[in-house]
Amino acid sequence: MFRTSTLRSVLPRIKLSSGGLYRSYHSQDHLGSNNIINKNSVESRVFTKALEFIPEKGFTKECIYKAVRELQYSDSLLSIFSNSTVGISLEFQLVLFWLKYQRQRLLTYVESNPSFFEISGEENRVTHLIQKRLEFNEPVIGKLSGAISQLIIPYHVDKSLEELHNLSDDVAFYSNDQSNDFSWYSKRFGLSTIYASSEVYMLQDNSPKFRSTHSFVEEKVSNMYQLGEAYNSFEEWTLFNAMSTVNLIKSQWHRG
C-alpha cells in the first residue's frame, strides 16, 4: 500500500528519522500507532513473565528459561530468541525489554493519573517523572548493576543510548516540552545525563525510601533549567546589544 522502498531508499542506513534514535511521529487518531510494546506477541509475553523472576535471579538467561517453562511453551522457542536477527544475547534482550517495559509503565502512569498534569511548571513535572521512573527500579535494585554493566558494553552502547534517549524524549513530551529549535536537543541530552547519573547514584543510596536520590534528581533538574534560563537571557542580551549597536552606527552615519 505504501511504497516503503521509495521513501527509505535514499538513506536506508541512517535510522535517525524513523523509530531509530528517537521516537518517531506521534499519531492522535490512528490507534495503536504509538505503542511501545506489542502486548500480543509471543516474545513480549515470555519476556513480561521473565521480568517477574529478575528480583530473584537477576538479569540472566535463567529468567527467560523459567518464563518459557511456566507459560508451557516448548523449549525450542528459546532458539528463536537466541537466533533472532537482532544478533544480541538473551541477557541483553531481557535488559532492553525491561527498559521498554518501564517506559510503557511510565506512559500508563501518566495516562491514568490526571493529577500529574496538575503539577505546575515543566521543571517540576520533569523531576516527578524521573523520580517515578527511578522508583520502578526499586524492586530490582540489588540486581540493577548487572543490567548497567551490560548496557555499557561497547558493543551494546548504541542500543542502550537509544533506549536512554527514548526515555528522556518520553519524559520531555509528557512534561509538555515546547522547544522547537536546537534546545530540543540540548534538553533531551541534559535529561539523559541526569537520568543516567541519578541511576548510578541510586545504586549506592542507602537512605530510607531513596530520599537522597530524589533530592539529587531535584537538584540536577533545577540546575539544568537554570542553565537554560541563563542561556536564553544571554541570547536576548546579545541580540538587544547587536541591534542597538547597528542603530547607533546608523544614526551617527546620518548625522554625518
Binding site: 505504501f2 516503503t4 527509505r8 528519522s17 518517531s24 511521529y25 490512528h30 490507534l31
Partner: peptide
C-alpha cells in the same frame, strides 16, 4: 476507529513536519 499507521507512513509524516517547520522558519 482508524487503523495504525505503518512505519513508512509515520516516517513520511515525521519528515513532512520537520521540513515544513524548517522551511517556514
Amino acid at each position: 476507529n482508524y487503523g495504525a499507521l505503518s512505519k513508512a507512513q509515520k516516517a513520511f509524516l515525521d519528515r513532512l513536519i520537520r521540513v515544513d517547520q524548517a522551511g517556514e522558519l
